[in-house]
Design a protein around this nucleic acid. Sequence first.
DNA 1: GTCTATATTTGGATAGAC
DNA 2: GTCTATCCAAATATAGAC
Lengths: 181, 181
Amino acid sequence: MAMDTFAARGYNNASLQEIADRAGVTQAGVLHYFRSKTLLLASVLQLRDETDTDQDLERPRGLAFLHHLVDTMRRNAEREGIVRLYAVLSAESTTEGHPAQEYFRERYENLRSDVAAALAEACELGEVRADVNIDEAANAIIAVMDGLQIQWLLAPGSVDMAASTDRVITALLAELADKPA
Amino acid sequence: MAMDTFAARGYNNASLQEIADRAGVTQAGVLHYFRSKTLLLASVLQLRDETDTDQDLERPRGLAFLHHLVDTMRRNAEREGIVRLYAVLSAESTTEGHPAQEYFRERYENLRSDVAAALAEACELGEVRADVNIDEAANAIIAVMDGLQIQWLLAPGSVDMAASTDRVITALLAELADKPA
DNA sequence: GTCTATATTTGGATAGAC
DNA sequence: GTCTATCCAAATATAGAC
């Protein structure tokens, strides 16, 4: 599977040869199916999205969504491949002309609005105001998950991804609920 | 300068040719100086460390250290190159056999103990107990900075790195100060 | 549809001239 | 010390046989 190779090596350093070997076909065979390495990457990302969205049929709201994020981190501690895939590709995508740049830009945009909405719901702020505090907190929650994954990949024993994520969410919620009072 | 090329392309995708062009020498000239691409990367990372440590002669303690982290994020918003260098290389380093893997492992280890110490000092917990909460919070603070950088590189207008970092630190401190009471 | 063979380019690295 | 020239390996991609 191509996904495993991209996960192990990133995009730039992954060769079609290695991907082909792992899939049990020739390098030319891979290119016959996907027309280029870039399109192969796009297919891998699309496949992962479809697999993931099949699991969460309905997006939970408010606190439930935030707890769902913590659960995902807990599950991720058992899926090193997927964690590395996203960690490496998202950072790689910030380089000039990377083929996954648009993908990750959109991905983060969606994540930001989802998390911000969940935070607002959890605080019962409704949609009254587009509070800048909410956006800052949403960005921070997404960031902490991404950053923890890198630390965890390098030193799994020193990082509890779910616990640290939960701590940040709890702390931020306390602040958000406090201040407007 | 090699740093700029690694920052723009990451390690894998950066070619000695491009580095040489930017430095105004030939590709062979670069390899004469640094014996291999791997050693060149090591030199770049070492140079950056020396440059940075010249600035902070003495490590501040407690709250001052945490505020220093926020200041660094504020400064980083004006140094896209350095931000990208670390964001891309640290994620790349989690792949198999990456030459910067040991460097980042140590770097995070040091960061974790520095931030944990600062948190303990800020809460006046002294060194009484190696509280697991402190470590979770320290990991989270480091993580939020790393994650924010990736989001910021992809969408600078949507992310205030310093503000989000400050928010997380403040929120976590409030929690830490609360609970043991 | 998957293979073999090959074209084409590019990468890192070395040898030796100046 | 930096250059030119070159080597070798690896990568993406294409053409055409089966």
